[in-house]
Design a protein around this nucleic acid. Structure first.
Length: 301
RNA sequence: GGUGCCAUAGCUCAGUUGGUAGAGCAAUGGACUGAAAAUCCAUGUGUCCUUGGUUCGAUCCCGAGUGGCACCA
C-alpha cells in the first residue's frame, strides 16, 4: 500500500493534539510533532506539550528532543523528519504529522532549497553590522551581492536581507542563484487535514488556555529559563511577556493579557498561511467521524 | 440633597480658538525557501450621551435632562 503522511494543521489551541492522538490510536501509528517550540526539552507548559499519559499512549517524535541552547531550523527539521519517516514507514502506515509551525510543515511537505548551514560567526557579524549601521547599510550590501534578490525581497524586513547576505557571503554566489523555486517530490503521499472553527470560539479557547497554563505554573517555568532569555527559542509567546514582567516593565496581569493577545495574533497568522494552501481539507474539531470518512474515501484506510 | 468634574472608535484617551475628528491597544487582511510561536507590510472603525438655544453652521459655546466619579451634608 502507498505510504501516506497525514498532516494535521490548524491554529494554536484548536485541538490538533487531541484529534491527532485519537487518530493515531485508531490507526495504530506514531505522531510526528511539527512544532518549533515543543521540540525544546526546557519548555513544556508554555508550549503545550501533551501530557505524560498521552505521550505514553502514542509514540510522539520531535517533542522535547533538543535543548534551547542548540541551533535548529526548518531545514534540519526537514532532514530529520524524512529520515524518521524512512524508519517508520515499513511498520507504520500512514504516519501522522501534526503541528502549527507553518514553515516546518512546509519544509517537510515541499522541501527547502539546499543552502549551506548558516555560520554563526557570519550571522553575528552581520547582526552587529546591522545594529551599528542600520537597515540601509545591509540593503546596499545586498544590492551589490545579489541585485536580483534585492528586487524581490521585502526591503523593510531585516531578517530576510540578513539571511540572503549570509548565504551570499558563505557561498560567494548570489542567494537568488541558489533558489530553485521548485517543490521537492516526496516518496510518499501527503494528505492534509486543516482544523478551524468560529473565530470567537477559538479566541475564547485560547484565552482560557493561557489562564490554564498560568495555573499550571507557567510563571515558574519562565523563571527557570529567565537566564536564557537572550536565546532565540525563548523569543516565544508565553515566555517573552513574562520576561518583561520579571524585568519590571509590565505587571503580572499585563503579561497574562499580552500572552493572550499574542496567542490570538499567532493563530491569525497561522490561518493566513494555511488559507493559501488549496490542498488542505478543512474540518471542525468535532467532526472526527467526518475526518475518518474522508480518510476512507481517500483510500488511505 | 448640595457643589464640582467627566461623557468622543470595541477599550484607554487626545482634539477641534465653532467649518461633523485621531492616537495607542484590540480587531481584520497579507507576505514568508535554514531565527518561523520569529520577522515584516497593510486596513477600517464613529448618531463626538440626549434635548432645547445662540449661530450661515454646534461634537465644541449657553441652558436643561440622563448617566458616572469625587467631595460636602
Amino acid at each position: 500500500m502507498e505510504k501516506t503522511l497525514i498532516v494535521v494543521v490548524g491554529p494554536t489551541g484548536i485541538g490538533k493534539s487531541a484529534i491527532s492522538l485519537k487518530l493515531a490510536q485508531y490507526l495504530n501509528t506514531d505522531i510526528i510533532s511539527a512544532d518549533s517550540r515543543q521540540i525544546y526539552r526546557e519548555l513544556s507548559i508554555g508550549t503545550a506539550v501533551p501530557p505524560e499519559k498521552d505521550l505514553n499512549t502514542v509514540t510522539h517524535h520531535f517533542i522535547q528532543t533538543i535543548s534551547v541552547n542548540d541551533y535548529y531550523n526548518a531545514s534540519m527539521f526537514e532532514t530529520d523528519v524524512l529520515k524518521k519517516l524512512e524508519q517508520l514507514f515499513p511498520s507504520k502506515n500512514p504516519v501522522i504529522l501534526t503541528g502549527g509551525s507553518m514553515f516546518y510543515v512546509d519544509a517537510v511537505c515541499n522541501g527547502i532549497d539546499d543552502f549551506p548551514t548558516v555560520d554563526q560567526e557570519i550571522r553575528s557579524q552581520l547582526i552587529e553590522e546591522f545594529a551599528q549601521n542600520g537597515l540601509e547599510a545591509i540593503r546596499l550590501q545586498l544590492k551589490q551581492l545579489d541585485p536580483i534578490y534585492y528586487g524581490k525581497v521585502d526591503l523593510k524586513n531585516p531578517k530576510r536581507i540578513l539571511h540572503a547576505l549570509e548565504i551570499c557571503l558563505m557561498t560567494g554566489k548570489p542567494y537568488s542563484s541558489l533558489r530553485s523555486g521548485t517543490l521537492k517530490e516526496r516518496p510518499f503521499r501527503i494528505v492534509k487535514i486543516g482544523l478551524n472553527m468560529e473565530r470567537e470560539n477559538l479566541y475564547k479557547r485560547i484565552n482560557e488556555r493561557v489562564l490554564q497554563m498560568v495555573a499550571q505554573g507557567l510563571f515558574e517555568e519562565a523563571r527557570s529559563v529567565y537566564h536564557l532569555k537572550h536565546l532565540n527559542p525563548l523569543n516565544t509567546v508565553g515566555y517573552k511577556e513574562i520576561f518583561a514582567y520579571f524585568d519590571g516593565t509590565i505587571t503580572r496581569d499585563e503579561a497574562i493579557e499580552q500572552i493572550q493577545n499574542n496567542s490570538r495574533k499567532y493563530a491569525r497568522k497561522q490561518l493566513t498561511w494555511f488559507r493559501r494552501d488549496p490542498t488542505i481539507n478543512w474540518f471542525e474539531p468535532q467532526q472526527y467521524n467526518e475526518i475518518i470518512n474522508f480518510l476512507h474515501s481517500s483510500n488511505i484506510l
